Simulated assay, not measured.
Amino acid sequence: MDDSRHPTVTDPELYRVIFENDRVRVVEFRDTPGTRTLRHHHPDSVLITLSAFRRRMAIDDRIVEVDRAPFEAGWMAAHTHIGENVGDTPTHVIFVEIK
């Protein structure tokens, strides 16, 4: 992956690495209602929600609405998108990126 498209580079005020080794990178994401990211790429990851949130994702030529409850975990296949918090609560998520 081109590291210039990693969200910690495109949106460093929203994403931060909290752990990394040769097999995984753990990234924390936080935003507030109305926040919109720049286009960025996520590698294959496990997504862990720490808060409920509602987001609108622009992935290629389609728009996807995502509602998540707190304390869910799930697989997220690699993709590139722009995300926007369209809910009324802050987002708090952990990504465990597979290298």
Rank of each mutant, 00 (worst) to 15 (best):
H81K: 08
L38S: 15
D3S: 11
I48L: 04
N21M: 06
H42C: 03
D22Y: 00
D67W: 00
T89G: 06
M76W: 04
W75C: 06
L50Q: 09
D44S: 02
L14T: 08
D2I: 10
P70S: 10
I63G: 04
V96H: 01
T32R: 11
D44H: 07
V27L: 07
F53H: 10
L38K: 15
F53R: 06
H6A: 14
Y15P: 08
F71C: 12
L38C: 11
D22C: 03
H6F: 12
V96C: 00
I18F: 02
E65Q: 11
G74R: 07
K99G: 10
H40T: 06
M76I: 11
T37M: 02
P33K: 04
E97H: 04
A58C: 04
R39M: 07
L50D: 04
W75P: 08
M1Q: 12
N21H: 06
A69G: 06
H40S: 05
R55S: 10
E13T: 15
D2H: 11
V96K: 02
V9C: 06
V17A: 11
V66F: 01
E13G: 14
V26C: 05
L50T: 06
D44N: 10
S51D: 09
R55K: 12
H92Y: 01
S45L: 05
H81D: 15
E65W: 05
E65F: 09
L47H: 03
E20G: 09
V24I: 14
H79A: 10
H92L: 07
R5G: 00
T80R: 14
T89W: 00
W75N: 10
I18V: 15
I59D: 03
V46F: 03
A52C: 07
E20A: 13
F95R: 02
T80D: 14
H6E: 14
R36K: 15
R5A: 06
V93M: 04
H79G: 13
T8K: 07
R39Y: 01
H92I: 01
F29H: 05
A58I: 15
P7Q: 06
P43W: 01
A52R: 07
V9S: 04
D67E: 12
I48P: 03
D31H: 09
R39V: 12
K99E: 12
L38M: 13
S45R: 02
S4G: 11
A52K: 06
E13R: 14
V26H: 04
D61T: 09
A73S: 12
I63F: 00
M1G: 15
T89K: 13
L50S: 02
N85C: 05
D11I: 08
R36M: 12
A69D: 14
T35W: 03
K99Y: 10
E28W: 07
E84Q: 15
K99F: 10
T37I: 07
R54I: 08
W75E: 10
G34R: 03
M1Y: 09
R68H: 02
T49A: 01
D88T: 12
V26K: 02
T8I: 15
I63Y: 02
S51M: 01
I94N: 03
I59C: 04
F19S: 14
G87K: 01
V27E: 06
H42Q: 02
F53P: 03
P90F: 00
K99W: 05
